[in-house]
């Protein structure tokens, strides 16, 4: 079931506006090349604090941020992609990772607790108990009446309070989009070792629309457009992290590389020149940031 093509809606990259496709890619680049600079900073010893990298999982936040930019965001610990895609400032993120006062939380919180309350972005920092952001998002939607998106991993879906909060959102008809960034790993333990059930089935049983798809950004874009009108809803999105749970190490090549697949798809659609330019611009910006 889990694959690089699971649930893809065929032909979407051709029907969705090219500007959207290019902006999705731009946001993916922003994360990828920010983190390339970060990895170098860790390797050369400039950053010694723990870091949680989003590389490999960029397409999810990149696509979502274009459909639901106004939502309150309750991110998980692997949150660089969320912060940067929704418009967070690269300099402030860098400062936070260095523990500097200019950081997103004044350098007090670090990589897995990124928040943003500026430039029309409302993103609450995570504190490390996986899935804690699910009831928080539900409570925030209850209290404010505003829509919220809650990102969490496949491990967090196994926390009892996640079910309970999702069920409450259904009972109260709260505008919350629940997004599982399913990289199949809790640290290094795979989903099928941990459980025999599907969170998508659980969400459907609770009474909300739910879908399993892979991290094709065009499919995500379209599904979020649909679900946005019918919240609460749940999306389980198969994705692959490039690096270890924490830190810059790797365990060989990931199952698939969505970044390359998106580039390939854009090339097929005649956007080779544009994406080359975006990639080059982003590389230059990030080089300047990290130099």
């Amino acid at each position: 079931m889990r694959s690089s093509t699971f649930g893809i809606i065929p032909g979407l990259s051709n029907t969705i506006n090219q500007d959207i496709s290019l902006e999705i890619f731009r946001r993916m680049c922003r994360v990828r090349y920010f983190e390339k600079g970060l990895i170098e900073a860790v390797k050369n010893g400039a950053i010694t604090y723990p870091i949680y990298l989003s590389s490999g999982q960029e397409s999810i936040a990149a696509a979502m941020s274009l459909v639901i930019p106004e939502f309150m965001i309750f991110a998980q610990h692997r949150c660089h992609a969320t912060y940067l895609s929704f418009g967070g400032d690269t300099g402030r993120l860098k400062d936070e990772l260095f523990g500097l006062p200019g950081g997103t939380s004044g350098g007090r919180a670090g990589s897995n607790c990124i928040q943003c309350h500026e430039n029309n972005i409302t993103m609450y920092g995570h504190h490390g108990l996986i899935g804690e952001n699910v009831p928080l998002a539900v409570g925030a939607a209850l209290g404010s009446g505003k829509p919220a998106v809650s990102f969490f991993g496949d491990g967090a879906t196994e926390e009892d309070y996640v079910f309970a909060a999702m069920g409450f959102a259904v009972s109260q008809k709260l505008p919350v989009l629940f997004v599982c960034e399913d990289n199949n790993l809790s640290i290094l333990t795979k989903v099928d070792v941990r459980r025999s059930w599907s969170m998508t089935n659980v969400a459907q049983a609770l009474g909300m629309p739910a879908v399993d798809i892979t991290d094709d950004p065009w499919t995500i874009y379209r599904k979020v457009q649909e679900f946005k009108k019918n919240l609460p809803a749940f999306m389980n999105i198969y994705t692959c992290r490039e690096n270890w749970h924490m830190g810059t190490g790797t365990d060989g090549k990931p199952e698939w590389d969505r970044f390359s697949l998106v580039k390939d798809e854009c090339n097929k659609r005649g956007l080779a020149k544009e994406i080359c330019q975006i990639e080059k611009e982003t590389q230059d910006q990030m080089k300047e940031l990290w130099d």
């Binding site: 309150m72 699910v134 998002a137 539900v138």
Partner: peptide
């Protein structure tokens, strides 16, 4: 979850 929901309401 109940306490988390209350904290979420407090955040807003």
């Amino acid at each position: 979850a109940g306490a988390g929901i209350a904290v979420g309401a407090a955040l807003v």
